[in-house]
């Protein structure tokens, strides 16, 4: 069983915990507290005058149709990014796990995109899909499909989803591959002897055994889509056209940093914080039960 380490006295364990607690307090609780405090204020850009306005900032954003639009965009964007990144990654992982020649090279190449910074990834996709200079963008216009993500909101959304998901595929791929390799060969062989075809083997044996990995990745991917896709959106569409690709995190940036509207931006951060806390709690409470480790 687990081995217990007993400290004599309380000073040493607390001292050892201190660095972690200090980091958590300074880098997590203090900024979060500042955001909550700021969400009740209305102040000018230079911080020379501030009023306490209670919940007015929250009432303002919740009655703003553009904010509700951003919520909807975030739902579409996050679920599309998470599912396409997971789907493509599991497909690639299953293929790369087969005994094929040069699989090492494939695996290495598939991991590469993860090392690309979000803004650079966005620029790469821009060079593909830009309607005038992009290879595919010009091709689409050439065969008569009017492609211009600067004026077409759905195309813009599609583009940011592809760019954001592509970036995350590598990460998911590594985990799926590790998960696949830890599935005992004997189980698969037994299923094969019982006459299960590869597709059936995948859905009845491999997929359930990958469930813990998939669950972990689902959480990570949704958090990624919520928070880490700022650079991709900023470089590709700046939230436009209209506000077609403005997600919650992007709106926090636009209102806080560009428009210098700190109260509204802080209120949005607090809402975002609540959403993510709720989402993670739900995932761990309800979905985790159905996952067999």
């Amino acid at each position: 069983m687990r081995k217990k380490v007993i400290f004599n006295g309380v000073a040493l364990p607390y001292l050892l915990l201190l660095p972690q607690l200090v980091i958590t307090a300074v880098f997590f609780f203090w900024p979060a507290g500042q955001a909550i405090y700021g969400s009740f204020l209305r102040e000018d850009a230079f911080g020379l005058s501030r009023d306490f306005v209670g919940l007015e900032n929250f009432a303002d954003i919740l009655s703003d149709p553009n904010y509700l639009g951003a919520v909807w965009n975030t739902v579409i964007f996050s679920s599309a990014v998470a599912f396409s990144a997971l789907g493509v990654a599991i497909f690639l992982a299953v293929q790369a796990d087969k005994a094929i020649r040069g699989s090492g090279a494939y695996k290495t190449l598939l991991i590469w995109p993860y090392a690309v910074a979000p803004a650079v990834a966005a620029v790469l996709w821009l060079f593909l899909f830009h309607p005038q200079i992009g290879l595919l963008g010009r091709f689409l216009n050439g065969i008569g499909i009017p492609w211009d993500y600067k004026v077409n909101g759905n195309q813009a959304m599609l583009l940011v989803i592809i760019a954001a998901a592509w970036k995350q595929v590598s990460y998911n791929f590594i985990f799926f591959l590790a998960g696949l390799q830890s599935i005992p060969r004997s189980v698969l062989e037994a299923a094969a002897i019982d006459g299960a075809r590869p597709t059936r083997r995948f859905w009845t044996v491999i997929f359930p055994l990958l469930a813990p990995t998939s669950f972990f990745l689902l959480v990570v991917n949704i958090v990624y889509a919520f928070f880490d896709t700022f650079g991709t959106i900023h470089a590709l569409t700046q939230g436009g056209p209209g506000q077609a690709t403005t997600t919650l995190i992007y709106k926090v940036y636009v209102d806080g940093v560009q428009n210098l509207n700190f109260g509204a931006s802080a209120a949005q951060s607090v809402v975002l914080m609540a959403i993510v806390i709720a989402l993670t709690a739900v995932q761990f409470r309800f979905i985790e039960r159905k996952v067999h480790y």
């Binding site: 909101g153 436009g240 056209p241 209209g242 560009q258 428009n259």
Partner: peptide
């Protein structure tokens, strides 16, 4: 005014769509 300029551009983009 920075925000107002963006707003006008956004609404114009919606009209273009």
């Amino acid at each position: 005014f920075v925000e107002i300029r963006t707003i006008i551009q956004e609404e114009l983009e919606r009209a273009f769509q």
